[in-house]
């Protein structure tokens, strides 16, 4: 098992290196960094000096190592547009995105998993069928449209909830939280529901499909033939087998919530990393794009790693591999 985790960590490092390479290539090959830093009237000589100072004339791999080294320290240079260190810009917005994503993930899981189980067990029930139809509508509704509709109803028509921004925040060290003020909590409601809805439908459909698959297995039939009741068959035997694959995919889905936050943040003008990123794309602000990419990759890799370890903890076939076929 330890060798399995070590292998996973090595793979994760490889992924991070690949992403770093892409981010570096952005700097290197797309546009001229000097052009983006200085004004039109800078002389050629000054440009060359700047180039020398920044180490842009060094061999590529040295530049890459320097880039990785800086990235490890959280340094991604200055934003072309904001003229501020990228690390500072992202740091200010990091907590906003994380809080939004966390609340959405909780909503998506707490609602999605039970709904998936329910629709699998009562496959032909009226309520399940309507859940399924609703979920299909949910998948067909683009996130930004959900946001707009919610704003239209609750923000514009009824004026119950704030339609944009984060409300009042409290700073705890470098972390700013909206959890501690009433306006902060109210501001969180619409964006988090918007962000959660799509993931929720996905999780629900996934849990349902996996559960139905397991319910067809021979060991469920054998359990029935031993007189086990439905509660035990569903929640003890089927659910445990269902959750093992579900954990992997759900983990990945939760990771993608952070990336999906781009859209929600843009609709609600939520001051997070996503909003910063989308503005950076519009402005071709490469340092921010690169930093965001690396950060998101890091979060994904960490989530993946946790999911893998969980997987091994839960599935006895991986935990005790004394016999049976080896590997995947």
């Amino acid at each position: 098992m330890i060798s399995f985790i070590v292998k996973r960590i090595l793979q994760s490092l490889l992924v991070m290196l690949a992403v770093a390479l892409i981010a570096f290539a952005l700097f290197q090959f797309v546009g001229d960094p000097i052009n983006n830093m200085v004004g039109q009237d800078t002389s050629l000589l000054d440009r060359e000096k700047l180039r020398q100072d920044l180490g842009l004339n060094d061999p590529i791999f040295i530049q890459f190592f320097r880039f990785v080294g800086n990235a490890l320290r959280g340094e991604f240079g200055f934003s072309y547009v904001h003229r501020l260190p990228v690390s500072q810009l992202i740091g200010e917005r990091f907590s906003a995105t994380i809080e939004l994503s966390f609340v959405s993930a909780v909503i998506a899981l707490v609602v999605g998993v039970p709904m998936g189980i329910y629709t699998a067990i009562n496959r032909r029930g009226l309520l399940s069928r309507s859940f399924m139809t609703l979920s299909l509508i949910g998948v067909s509704l683009p996130t930004f449209l959900i946001g707009i509709l919610l704003i239209l109803v609750f923000g514009v028509s009824f004026r119950w909830l704030p339609a944009f921004g984060r409300g009042e925040v409290v700073n705890i060290g470098w972390w700013s939280t909206g959890f501690l003020t009433a306006s902060g909590l109210k501001a969180l409601i619409l964006p988090s529901i918007t962000l959660a809805l799509f993931q929720m439908t996905l999780i629900m459909r996934l849990v349902r499909a996996e559960m139905l698959e397991v319910m067809r297995a021979d060991f469920i039939k054998f359990g029935r033939a031993r007189g086990l009741n439905n509660r035990s068959l569903y929640f003890r035997h089927a659910l445990k087998n269902t959750l093992i694959p579900v954990i992997t995919i759900t983990g990945l889905q939760l990771g993608s919530i952070i990336a999906f936050a781009i859209i929600t943040e843009s609709v609600f003008q939520w001051p997070g990393m996503g909003l910063l990123f989308i503005q950076a794309i519009g402005d071709a602000d490469i340092p921010i794009m690169a930093a965001y990419l690396v950060l998101i990759a890091l979060i994904f890799v960490l989530i993946n790693l946790i999911v893998d370890i969980l997987y091994v903890r839960i599935d006895p076939r991986l935990r005790t591999s004394t016999s049976g076929s080896g590997g995947q």
């Binding site: 021979d218 060991f219 039939k221 054998f222 033939a225 035997h237 445990k240 087998n241 006895p316 076939r317």
Partner: peptide, 15 residues
């Protein structure tokens, strides 16, 4: 009591 054909799939693998 009932016994089925395939012993590989008749038992719950995670218990």
């Amino acid at each position: 009591g009932m016994i089925f054909q395939d012993p590989l799939t008749s038992l719950n693998p995670v218990e």
